[in-house]
């Protein structure tokens, strides 16, 4: 299993959480944690997700990219270790 952080940034509108969550479900990713807020009118969301197989990563990333385009938001997916590497000794 691998863990990845999904970040979503863009103009707020209806259906962003639903759209992203649906894509994650289709790709077999389990949402472990999520935090969402609106800064001014900008929607920002971070999610920690778990993927059963490392080799599903590229497919999930591609699917989320497509979803992002449909929703008009920017979606980044990065494996979790990079954040730990930078901030913890």
């Amino acid at each position: 299993m691998i863990k990845a952080v999904v970040t979503v940034v863009g103009k707020d509108k209806a259906g962003i959480v639903a759209g992203v969550a649906q894509t994650l479900a289709q790709e077999g990713a389990n949402i472990l944690d999520m935090a969402q807020t609106i800064m001014d009118t900008t929607f920002t969301m971070s999610m920690l997700v778990a993927l059963p197989q490392a080799n599903d990563f590229n497919a999930m990333q591609q699917a989320l990219e497509t979803t992002g385009q449909q929703l008009g938001v920017t979606i980044h997916v990065q494996r979790e270790e990079i954040f730990d590497a930078m901030a913890r000794v």
């Binding site: 952080v5 970040t7 944690d33 935090a35 971070s46 990079i82 954040f83 930078m86 901030a87």
Partner: peptide, 11 residues
């Protein structure tokens, strides 16, 4: 999940 760290890295 530390969203501050995540934001910092992405920035």
């Amino acid at each position: 999940m530390d969203t501050k760290q995540i934001r910092e890295t992405i920035q």
